[in-house]
Design a protein around this nucleic acid. Structure first.
Length: 951
RNA sequence: AGGACUAUAGCUCAGUUGGUUAGAGCGCUACCUUGACAUGGUAGAGGUCCCCAGUUCGAAUCUGGGUAGUCCUACCA
């Protein structure tokens, strides 16, 4: 082994070996355990959130593989409709100045495929670098022909079951991207806006009870008034009783529109009169449907004012009778310009009553970033209510469990109130909807024109055209758990690996993806008995990885960290280029530059994959976000180095030596028995924690055991045996064997979290450890063996540690050089103490660096000494020539004071009659025992202090 | 408006069913190149467990009410 730990050298080699040998593929033996990777955008790159989730998933799958399961970790990428199309459109614009329309649909999608080929390898390269043991043989892309076929099949299935329909509905329309989007893709933002109070004159000479010849409506969207088709007031509102059923004359347009009563109108809000614009507001749309109001669309798909409105009846059919006039001065005006123009016109007419500042939340498209417009368009919808029902039951009855559990509430509240899901997108990149239309617009759903003709018995003279729209990306990723396994065919893989076991993903896509996968799977995927199949049994929801100051990582903030840079390191120049190059908002570049230069003055050094993974694992407590901490990464890099060096020590002392592989007598030292016993606890705990998804506790347990117990104590305790010329062959054999076998077990225990380092070390010690195999990843996960528990040895070592720490404490406090060998005395020891001393003299001498140890019998005179207590036994370091009188007194004072506090606290408890009466006896006894110990210790220290003071 | 989560050492975080001397890493102080490791070792300092009230013999932990922060959902004429 090299003298220094160099992660990059070992990491790339091992991954290649594993992959070349097909170790990631299902073994075909044992109980099945499967997971799907949340498919990342094919053209994207992995960020810290991916690295976090992938670490958890890889830890789980490696653990399960080592448990002997038949594991499948399904890998693949998503075509990510809008996101990818946008990237390529932007690229096209930058390079040639063309839009997608200049190229046309086919040529443009070819461009996207080109881009996918060019950049698509990036993300899979990164996965390999992270060590993900995914089954590459089974890699899928959502636009693969087989997957496309599954998507079409799913659509047709749902359509034939009456769960997909097409209709003219009000949907969220992105006027920049020119597509409908789902409710979930809309982000609300708080903005300061205005509310305008507009006067609408009453028609036919009608007046209100108050004698007014007009009413006043309040609106935040005056430009939609061309589409007003009613005014609503509350039926209970005393102010407007007499005008219900009468009309107003819509200013600027002249259309007479009715005043209706509807519960939507709130007497408390605004003026009590609401203008109803069914084609441009979701609430008004509902009112319109309820009251059979016509709808007038006044906006183009760009959200500009039309030249003439489009009239529809409330059922969506065309209404060519209604007056859809829009004054010429507003034609083709952009919506916000039109807003100002309409207000100006009202003002000119004297119809503008007042303007108020108004805080409101406005919907923005999460991709395009512009204000979303409710738009009346023909779209495809999935009946989400029906699809949701079984999934709610599956979570209620525990078939699907969320970790942490509180996400179930979030899931329920959304699912129980779910709205129909708009699944069509007016994009070019995606799964084209398998629907055909004849000249009359009648719909035929089938996966090809040929199939449509057969299915619907259409004669050849009927011309069919295919729907131009594509499906929402989440429609296809909703099929991910089973379409990747060959659905709709009933394949063996589907039989074996579905439902999958655990889904690991972020809370931000519970609705987008997790819920959709559940709906799709439970409707489409049935087991042999016809029972709906859940897609997964457990959903492990991870938090977000944030930056050091708790901010979300984002390109615009310039605080994004690339996991690969943590692994391989990056120079400041490259990091700056990465963060400020190719920015959407170049004005931020300077700020980002400064911040980056300050935080990473020397760039980022390489830490290796294992260190990154261990850090993420250690931070993975459930139900909480992670604030990334570079220091923590450094600490775990040091941990890797620690393991490396410990392994070097083991190798030096065992390679080519007799470790008992070939038989021979074995004598285990106390330390050997102790570390073996401790190891059993660790094995139990680690497995338990991983089973409970507490990877952080598993990591913490391993860290503590390896560093503090194995390296800190055991390796030191092995030296007095291995370097002792008087030790017997069987004693040395026993210690060598323990040294290397414990390390071998530690490597297997740690392998799921840190695959590379553990493989490298395992390979170089497996011979001495007496094990064989091609790779640690195919070895079994260690299991505790209770026969190896040795509580007596554990107690003995605790005693030993107490004595050694006691001496070291005196050394430290008294500033005695570690090089100075001390002669100590033991006073007031019991028979057990004497036994332990005699058994472990060698260990004590070496670890506390002593010259000799003198056992004082009763009546022996002790010299003036600094004292430490191990139970009742006194460890004495003679002061003569070493220790200053005042220093020892002040050290004793400190001890006495500390004990004072403890004694006071416990005395308080014990003098409380209620405590003594009510607390369990064991608890009371424990307190009594404690206080007795404290008191006797304190007594000793006080006596000692008096003696020293008397000098 | 409704809901969820979070608040523990200077920083980042653990703390399982109420009983611990409240822990870890980093940082800090002092000392130490001892034959695995200075990416190290030894010893040490550092806490009003956000606040108030309650339940209890006993609360970081349970209940109620605040405060601060994060997030989700809905609405806003």
């Amino acid at each position: 082994m090299d003298k220094t730990y160099q992660p990059s050298a070992i990491e790339t080699n091992w991954y290649k070996t594993w992959e070349d040998n097909n170790y990631f593929a299902p073994s075909g033996e044992g109980e099945a355990y499967s997971m799907v990777i949340p498919p990342p955008n094919v053209t994207g790159s992995l960020h810290m959130g991916h690295a976090f989730q992938h670490t958890i998933m890889d830890t789980l799958i490696r653990y399960q593989r080592m448990q002997g399961k038949n594991t499948l970790w399904q890998v693949g990428t998503d075509h990510a409709g809008i996101a990818t199309q946008m990237i390529v459109e932007r690229k096209l614009a930058a390079e040639t100045g063309q839009t997608r329309h200049d190229l046309g649909r086919e040529a443009f999608t070819d461009k996207i495929w080109e881009w996918k080929e060019e950049s698509g390898g990036n993300i899979t390269r990164q996965m390999r670098r992270l060590g993900n043991s995914v089954d590459w043989n089974n890699e899928r892309f959502t636009m693969d022909p087989e997957f496309q076929a599954s998507v079409e099949e799913a659509f047709i299935n749902l359509y034939d079951d009456g769960l997909i329909y097409r209709g003219k509905r009000l949907v969220n329309w992105d006027p920049k991207l020119h597509t409908a989007i789902s409710d979930l893709e809309v982000e609300s933002k708080e903005v300061k806006g205005k509310m305008w109070y507009l006067r609408y004159p009453l028609a036919d000479g009608v007046t209100t009870d108050a004698g007014e010849d007009h009413i006043i409506v309040a609106t935040t969207r005056p430009e939609t008034m061309f589409g007003d088709t009613a005014i609503a007031v509350n039926a209970e509102d005393p102010r407007f009783q007499s005008i219900i059923g009468k009309f107003v004359e819509l200013p600027l347009v002249g259309r007479k529109i009715p005043i209706i009563a509807d519960e939507h109108a709130d007497m408390e809000k605004g003026t009590g009169c609401v203008k109803i614009t069914p084609a441009h507001d979701f609430n008004d749309y509902e009112v319109g449907k309820r009251r059979q109001l016509p709808m007038i669309n006044v906006l183009t798909l760009n959200a500009d004012i039309r030249q003439v409105g489009q009239g529809f009846n409330s059922d969506g059919s065309v209404n060519d009778e209604i007056n859809c006039y829009i004054p010429e001065q507003f034609h083709n005006m952009e919506r916000f310009a039109a807003r100002r123009a309409v207000v100006a016109e009202f003002e000119a007419l004297g119809f503008l009553v007042k303007i108020e500042e108004n805080n409101m939340t406005i919907p923005y498209g999460d991709r395009g970033g512009v204000v979303i417009e409710p738009m009346l368009t023909d779209q495809w919808f999935a009946n989400a209510k029906v699809l949701a029902q079984p999934t709610i039951e599956a979570v209620e009855n525990g078939d699907i469990k969320f970790v942490p559990k509180q996400y179930e509430n979030m899931f329920f509240s959304w699912m129980r109130d779910i709205q129909d899901w708009c699944i069509s997108r007016q994009l070019w990149w995606g799964h084209r909807i398998p629907a055909f239309y004849d000249a009359q617009g009648k719909v035929y759903v089938a996966n090809s024109e040929q199939a449509a003709r057969e299915k619907y018995n259409l004669t050849a003279d009927i011309e069919l055209t295919r729907d131009n729209d594509v499906l929402d990306t989440w429609f296809s990723s909703g099929l991910w758990s089973f379409a990747t396994l060959g659905w709709p065919e009933q394949t063996d893989d589907l039989e074996t690996f579905h439902p999958t076991d655990t889904l690991v993903t972020g809370f931000d896509i519970i609705f987008f993806w997790v819920a959709r996968m559940m709906m799709m799977s439970m409707h489409l995927c049935k087991d042999r008995a016809g029972k709906p199949q859940i897609p997964f049994k457990n959903v492990y929801i991870t938090g977000l990885v944030r930056d050091e100051s708790g901010e979300k990582m984002s390109k615009t903030k310039g605080n994004v960290l690339d996991p690969l840079d943590m692994i391989d390191g990056i120079s400041l120049e490259d990091l700056l280029e990465k963060r400020t190059g190719n920015m959407m908002q170049p004005q931020m570049a300077e700020k980002i530059r400064k911040r980056t230069e300050k935080e990473y003055a020397d760039g980022i050094p390489a830490h290796g994959t294992d260190a990154l993974r261990f850090t993420l694992a250690a931070l993975a407590s459930t139900g909480r976000d992670i604030n990334w901490d570079m220091k923590r990464l450094e600490g775990y890099r040091n941990f890797c180095n620690k393991i490396w060096n410990a392994a070097r020590y083991v190798e030096m002392n065992t390679a080519g030596e007799d470790c008992g592989q070939n038989g021979g007598d074995i004598t285990l030292s106390l330390a050997d028995r102790w570390i073996n016993s401790k190891l059993q606890h660790i094995q139990t705990q680690t497995a338990k924690y991983i089973d409970e998804y507490r990877i952080d506790l598993a990591a913490q347990t391993l860290y503590d055991f390896i560093w503090n117990e194995y390296c800190g104590w055991y390796l030191e305790l092995s030296k007095p045996v291995l370097w002792n010329e008087e030790a017997s062959a069987s004693e040395k054999r026993g210690t060598r064997q323990t040294l290397v076998r414990v390390l071998e077990v530690i490597m297997r225990l740690t392998h799921p979290i840190m695959p590379f380092l553990t493989e490298e070390i395992w390979q170089s010690i497996k011979g001495q450890a007496g094990v064989s195999g091609d790779s640690i990843m195919l070895q079994s996960y260690p299991k505790a063996n209770n026969d190896k528990l040795d509580l007596a040895a554990e107690a003995d070592i605790e005693w030993l540690k107490g004595v050694i720490t006691g001496v070291r404490n005196i050394r430290g406090e008294m500033a005695i050089s570690p090089a100075k060998e001390l002669s100590i005395l033991i006073n007031n020891g019991s028979d057990t103490d004497l036994q332990r001393l005699n058994d472990n003299r060698n260990f004590l001498m070496k670890l506390a660096s002593l010259a000799d140890i003198t056992w004082l019998s009763a009546g022996d005179e002790a010299p003036m000494s600094a004292t430490q207590l191990v139970g009742k036994m006194e460890v004495l370091v003679p002061m003569a020539g070493l220790i200053d009188k005042d220093a020892e007194i002040s050290r004793l004072n400190k001890e006495i004071e500390k004990l004072d506090k403890d004694i006071g606290r416990i005395e308080g408890k014990l003098s409380n009659q209620k405590f003594v009466a009510n607390a369990p006896e064991a608890v009371v006894a424990k307190e009594r025992e404690k206080i007795a110990g404290f008191k006797s210790s304190q007594q000793k220290f006080v006596e000692q202090r008096a003696k020293i003071a008397a000098l």
